[in-house]
Amino acid sequence: MRAVTYREPGPSSVLSLVDLDLPEPGPGEVRVRLLRAGVNPTDWKFRATGKNGPYDEVAPGQDGSGVVDAVGPGVVGFAEGDRVWLVLAQSGRWLGTAAEYTVQPVDRVVHLPVGASYDLGAALGVPAVTAHRALTAGEDVERIAPGTMSGMTVLVAGGAGAVGTAATQLARWAGATVYSTVSSEEKAALAVAAGAHETINYRVADTAAEVQAMCPEGVDLVVEVALAQNVALDVAVLRNRGTIAYYADNGGSEATVPVRDTFAKNLRLQGLLLYTLGADLLEIAIADVNAAVDVGALQVGADFGVPLHHFPLEQTAAAHDAVEQGTIGKVLLAIAEE
C-alpha cells in the first residue's frame, strides 16, 4: 500500500511517499481502506517536534474516513463494507491516516451515518470532538443535543476556524445564541454560514463593548483559541459562573489572568486536549457528534462555513504546509474514491 511517512522530525520536506506491506488487524482491530483523511494543526506540530512516541517511522493523521475491509478476532459491531470515520488514529500509534489503509482499535472507529459524505467524515475527529468538549466544559451542559443549550450564549473566538465552525454548528443545534470573533469580512461570512448569529471583527471593533452591548448580562461560555491574548476580554464579557474553554495556545504560551476579576465572578478556566480527554468523555462526544451528523446539524463545504481543499496523498507535504500557513477551511487528503 502507499503511505506518506517520516523518520525524523522537521519541516514538511521530511515527508516521503513510500510503499508498505498491507497491515493485518489484530484482536479488537479493524482495517479501513481510507478514502479521505483530515489534516489538522496537530499533524504538522507533531511532525515538526517529533512528539510521536518511540517509532522509527510515522504516517501522520488523526482523522479519516473510509470503508472497513477486514476485521480482527473478537470484533463485534463492524463488518467488511461498513462506512466509518476515525478519531485519534495516530495517537500512541505509528500508522495514522496518511495512507491507503490503516488498522485501528474499534474504539477509534465510528459508523458514518447514512448520507454523510466521506469529506465530512474525515473532518469530524479533531475539530468536532474538541468543539464538543469546549461546549460541555462548564457547569451547565453535559450533552449536546437539541435544547441542551437553550437560552445560553456562546462567544467563539476564531469563528471561521475548524474548531470554531464546529462549535458554532453544534451550539446552534443545541439551541444557543452564538457570537463569533473574526479578523476579516471573508471570515465573518464563513462564521455566519456556520450559524453565528453575530460576528465581531476584532481588528476594527471594541470587542468587549460589542459583546456587552449584545449580551449585557454576560455570555455563558467562551470557546477560546488564543487565551494569552484574550483572557482579559473573556473575563470582562463572561457572566458570573461562566467558563473559558481553551484548546490552543495561539498568540502565546503563557497567559496573565486577572485574578480578582476571575474569582469575583466565580469563573472557570477549563483547558482541554483531545489526547487526554479520557474514554468516558470521548465516548459521549462521539455519540453526540454522530447524532448531529445524522440530522445534518454538522456539515462541511463553503455553504456551511467550511470550504474544502483537497490534496492527493502524494502531496501530503503541501497539505501540511497549507494548514500551517492558515488556509481557511478544511484541508483533506483525497486518497481514493468509493
Rank of each mutant, 00 (worst) to 15 (best):
V4A: 03
T5A: 11
Y6T: 05
G10Q: 10
L15V: 04
S16A: 14
S16T: 04
L17D: 05
L20W: 05
D21K: 14
G28D: 06
G38W: 11
P41R: 03
F46Y: 09
A48G: 14
T49P: 01
D56C: 00
D56A: 13
P60R: 06
G61Q: 07
A70K: 11
A79N: 12
G81S: 06
L86I: 15
L86V: 15
Q90L: 06
R93N: 03
L95K: 07
G96V: 12
G96M: 13
T97G: 11
T97H: 13
V103E: 08
L112F: 04
P113G: 05
P113F: 10
S117M: 05
Y118K: 02
A123R: 06
R133Y: 05
A134N: 07
L135Y: 07
L135V: 07
G138K: 03
E139V: 10
E139P: 00
R143G: 02
R143Q: 10
I144N: 08
L155V: 11
G159M: 13
A160Y: 09
T168F: 07
T168G: 08
Q169G: 09
A174D: 00
T177G: 12
T181L: 11
T181Q: 11
E185C: 02
K187D: 07
A193I: 02
R203H: 14
R203M: 12
R203L: 15
E210Y: 02
V231I: 13
A232G: 01
L233V: 11
D234K: 13
R239M: 11
Y247D: 02
A255N: 12
R260Y: 15
L272W: 04
N290S: 15
D294S: 14
G296P: 10
A297Y: 02
E314C: 07
T316F: 15
A322D: 08
Q325W: 04
L332N: 05
A334Y: 09
A336W: 02
